[in-house]
Simulated assay, not measured.
Amino acid sequence: MADYNVTKTLDVMGEVCPVPDVETKRALKKMKAGEILEVLIDYPMSKERIPETVKKMGHEVLEVKDAGTSEWKIYIKVN
């Protein structure tokens, strides 16, 4: 498990689709290349959907990490 130099944290805990996906895309568009976005989620479908969306946008998913029971952290590097 790596420690990332997180630029921005997006907390979408308690939100269901499409909110986590839309908010992640919105946050990434405002960030610069090389910055790292940490997304906090607790909606299982977002664990699959956000990484797929991010890759299609051309960014890099560094890690999807378990953060508790039905909670995850997704680390994304902006390209």
Rank of each mutant, 00 (worst) to 15 (best):
26 R>Q: 14
48 E>W: 00
61 V>R: 03
39 V>G: 03
18 P>V: 11
37 L>A: 05
8 K>L: 13
61 V>F: 02
7 T>I: 07
24 T>F: 01
34 G>K: 08
63 E>L: 13
35 E>Q: 15
20 P>S: 06
36 I>E: 04
7 T>N: 08
45 M>L: 07
4 Y>N: 09
79 N>T: 10
35 E>L: 03
21 D>M: 06
55 K>G: 09
68 G>Y: 01
29 K>Y: 07
69 T>V: 13
36 I>W: 00
62 L>S: 07
78 V>G: 02
56 K>S: 04
69 T>A: 10
25 K>M: 15
48 E>P: 00
59 H>G: 03
70 S>A: 11
15 E>N: 11
32 K>F: 06
34 G>C: 06
57 M>F: 08
69 T>L: 11
58 G>D: 06
42 D>M: 02
32 K>N: 14
37 L>C: 05
13 M>G: 10
46 S>T: 09
29 K>S: 13
53 T>W: 00
51 P>N: 10
54 V>L: 06
16 V>L: 13
47 K>W: 00
65 K>L: 12
60 E>Q: 12
20 P>M: 11
33 A>W: 01
71 E>H: 05
2 A>T: 14
24 T>Y: 01
15 E>V: 03
66 D>R: 11
59 H>C: 02
48 E>Y: 04
22 V>W: 01
53 T>K: 02
22 V>G: 04
48 E>D: 09
52 E>I: 09
60 E>H: 08
74 I>H: 04
21 D>R: 00
79 N>G: 12
1 M>I: 14
17 C>F: 09
61 V>I: 13
58 G>T: 09
59 H>N: 10
52 E>G: 05
44 P>E: 06
32 K>Q: 14
36 I>L: 03
63 E>W: 08
27 A>P: 11
9 T>S: 14
50 I>S: 03
15 E>G: 00
12 V>G: 00
68 G>V: 08
11 D>S: 14
70 S>Q: 12
40 L>I: 09
8 K>Y: 09
33 A>V: 12
6 V>H: 05
9 T>R: 14
15 E>W: 00
15 E>K: 15
28 L>I: 14
12 V>M: 01
48 E>N: 07
40 L>H: 08
28 L>G: 02
45 M>A: 07
43 Y>C: 03
10 L>W: 04
35 E>I: 07
9 T>L: 06
65 K>H: 11
7 T>A: 08
22 V>L: 12
27 A>V: 15
33 A>M: 10
29 K>T: 13
69 T>I: 13
1 M>C: 12
52 E>Y: 05
41 I>F: 00
45 M>S: 05
67 A>F: 06
61 V>Y: 03
21 D>L: 06
44 P>S: 06
39 V>M: 09
29 K>M: 13
23 E>M: 15
73 K>T: 12
62 L>T: 10
34 G>F: 06
22 V>Q: 08
18 P>D: 08
